[in-house]
């Protein structure tokens, strides 16, 4: 028995400084509103994960920040510039792993592609590029069109990281990689964060993988944010309450929090609530529920709770 309630978490991260902001960002493709009044705020130095179902607008958003998709309404600032009219400038400061696997030109060798990038980016760190290439076991003699998905992904990660850009936009960065290479990528990203001052935006369906790296979370649905907040605030404020309740219990009149999701059986409830832990526990207890456990949610669980609440509305 699961019953869901609409709820939106906070989306205002305050006054910054921000590496990336959008205000009222909108983009339609035909009748589809891919981005529908989106207010993104990515603080400088944050590792921000963008979560949402297929079609929520994650890739469109990232491509808009890159200046690869034109927006139709609103405002965008990426590293202080508008990618709408200064796309090339904006892109030179970004390490980008696109959703698409294809890299370079079919006939080009990987080694030539890396040299090409080194010329384009004055901040290219050749030694770091060599180190990454070795860790990823990339053969520079391979032609781009002969690369598998996983091999392309590794090349794309080297291209994104080796110029140590102030901003990384990673669209499903571990997609197509096997377990060992995925794990190596997480280790590389940890070291990269320790060595270079960087803001990171990661869009992924495998949130559990990057969760230990992440300090900000944005949940996207139908081109809008359902919540945008620091990971610690999500952990502290969105909690799951397990309680035993009397037969026919109808719930408290006043809870001191916002119920995001209700589920459970007749005499035992499992509620996901956004609010102050003590106030919610008191509210449940006063209404006759015996609270057994209160626990934080993983980012994955939080996203599922928020998105399923949305679906039912």
């Amino acid at each position: 028995m699961t019953d869901t309630v609409t709820a939106t978490l906070p989306i205002d991260l305050g006054s910054g400084p921000f590496a990336v902001t959008t205000r009222g960002l909108a983009r339609r493709f035909g009748s589809v509103r891919a981005l529908d009044g989106l207010d993104l705020q990515v603080p400088e130095g944050a590792v921000y994960v963008l979560v949402g179902p297929n079609g929520a607008g994650k890739s469109t958003l990232i491509r808009t920040l890159m200046g690869l998709v034109r927006y139709q309404a609103g405002a965008v600032s990426v590293l202080g510039r508008d990618p709408g009219d200064r796309g090339a400038e904006v892109r030179s400061g970004i390490g980008y792993v696109p959703e698409d696997y294809r890299v370079g030109y079919a006939w080009m060798t990987v080694g030539r592609l890396l040299e090409h990038q080194a010329v384009y980016h004055p901040s290219w760190d050749a030694e770091y590029a060599r180190e990454l290439r070795a860790r990823y076991d990339i053969d520079p003699g391979r032609k781009c069109h002969t690369l598998s998905k996983g091999q392309s992904r590794r090349v794309q990660l080297v291209l994104a990281l080796a110029h140590r850009p102030p901003l990384l936009l990673l669209d499903e960065p571990t997609d197509g990689l096997d377990h060992v290479v995925r794990d190596e990528t997480l280790s590389i990203l940890s070291e990269h964060l320790a060595d270079s001052p960087t803001t990171v935006v990661i869009s992924t369906h495998r949130v559990y993988e990057v969760e230990p790296l992440v300090d900000h979370v944005g949940v996207l649905s139908e081109g809008r944010l359902l919540g945008q907040l620091p990971r610690d605030e999500l952990r502290g404020g969105l909690l799951r309450y397990w309680a035993d309740v009397p037969e026919g219990w109808t719930g408290p009149g006043e809870l001191g929090g916002r119920v995001v999701r209700r589920s459970g059986a007749a005499r035992a409830i499992e509620w996901t609530v956004w609010g102050d832990r003590d106030a919610v526990t008191r509210g449940l207890s006063q209404a006759g529920a015996a609270v057994r456990e209160v626990a934080p949610l993983s980012v994955d669980e939080a996203a599922v709770a928020l998105l399923s609440g949305r679906k039912a509305s």
Binding site: D183, S187, S190, E191, L193, A194, P212, L213
Partner: peptide, 15 residues
């Protein structure tokens, strides 16, 4: 070091 531990745990160095 912060770098080594965060790399081996695959966590954010700030943690």
């Amino acid at each position: 070091s912060v770098r080594d531990l965060s790399s081996s745990l695959r966590v954010n160095p700030r943690t």
